[in-house]
Amino acid sequence: MACERGGRIWRLADACGACAAATTQAAIVPDTMLTAPLRPPPVQPRRPRPSRGPGERVRVGEILSYLAAALPADASAGARLLALQCALRMNAYMRVELRAGLLRSLRIDVVEACHELERARWASVVNGPGALGIAAELRDTTLLAQSPALPDRRRAADWALRTGCPARIGGVEPRLRLSGVYLAAHSDPPSGEGLSECDRIIRDCGLHSHGFHGALSRLTANGVLEEWRICPDSGDVHWTLAQGQCPAVPPSDR
């Protein structure tokens, strides 16, 4: 591009680089590049987080055994169901918040269950029970030794809720639902078969000896168990879950 008449007129012409450089009062117009519009990187599908530590059944079974030692022997099934959810959902500061919808799904007397846990000095309720739920601080530092992966523990808590729901158990009685959760937690998923000591079932589920046979008989009548029996030699209890009574693991965390 060359100028004439003192720069008032400019002429645009094609020329090689050498000619353009030799032309007086000329300026080389640089080549322009059309840049492609920037596009955001493709969104990678989120991979499910791998589970860490024991599975849902093992984790629930371990907490039920822990609660059998941490709570008084006469603690009600409702208090144990509430404590199970608190232990699995607590954060690293041993605090837990349970919303009202979750508490309703437990189908227990939440006020009485909270009083039981406070009398046992296992938990301290700092807010509620109310319309929004409860907030509590757990007082047993033994719980800090469990797996720190909160999403995995929440999955186990959700599994326990589904396993012990009245629609599956066939009744709303907390003792019956707690027993159903225990038996499912100690069953082999593919076959549904389980084995445990009779005394341990009574202790972990808070059952008195006279209520043990009644609870398992009702679970059989309600279609949760296919059969159960006590080995006369060892005293162990053998049972088999009815077909379709092994809840699936949720595909993602809640």
Rank of each mutant, 00 (worst) to 15 (best):
A2M: 08
R5E: 15
G6L: 02
W10E: 12
A13G: 15
G17N: 11
A18Q: 14
A18Y: 06
A20R: 08
A21C: 14
A22G: 14
A22S: 15
T24V: 08
T24E: 14
Q25C: 07
I28F: 11
I28C: 11
V29T: 15
P30R: 11
D31S: 15
A36P: 06
A36K: 13
L38N: 05
L38F: 13
L38R: 12
P40A: 15
P41I: 02
V43N: 03
Q44L: 11
P45C: 05
R47Y: 02
R49M: 09
R52T: 13
P54T: 08
E56N: 13
R57W: 03
V58F: 11
R59N: 06
G61W: 00
I63L: 10
L64F: 00
S65W: 01
Y66G: 04
Y66R: 09
A68T: 04
A68L: 01
D74N: 10
A75C: 14
S76D: 05
A77W: 11
G78I: 09
G78N: 08
G78S: 15
A79M: 01
R80Y: 07
R80K: 12
M94A: 11
V96R: 07
E97G: 01
E97H: 03
A100R: 10
G101R: 09
R104W: 04
R104G: 03
S105P: 01
L106N: 06
V111T: 14
E112C: 03
C114N: 04
H115P: 00
H115V: 08
H115F: 10
E116V: 09
L117M: 09
E118W: 03
A120I: 04
V125H: 09
A131Q: 05
G133P: 10
A135D: 10
A136P: 01
E137Q: 06
L138F: 01
L138S: 02
R139C: 08
R139V: 05
D140P: 07
T141C: 01
T142D: 14
S147K: 07
P148G: 12
P148T: 11
P148C: 13
A149E: 02
L150M: 09
L150Q: 12
P151M: 13
D152C: 05
R153G: 03
A156Y: 03
A157K: 09
R162T: 11
T163I: 00
P166Q: 01
A167I: 08
A167D: 15
I169V: 15
V172T: 13
P174Y: 07
R177N: 07
R177S: 07
G180H: 04
Y182V: 04
L183D: 04
A184G: 03
D188I: 04
P189I: 06
P189C: 07
S191V: 05
S191H: 07
E193V: 10
L195F: 11
S196Q: 08
I202G: 04
R203E: 12
H208T: 14
H208V: 09
A215L: 00
L219I: 06
A221M: 12
N222D: 14
N222A: 14
V224K: 00
E227H: 13
E227L: 12
W228L: 11
W239H: 02
Q245L: 13
C246K: 12
C246G: 10
C246R: 15
A248K: 12
S252Y: 09
S252I: 04
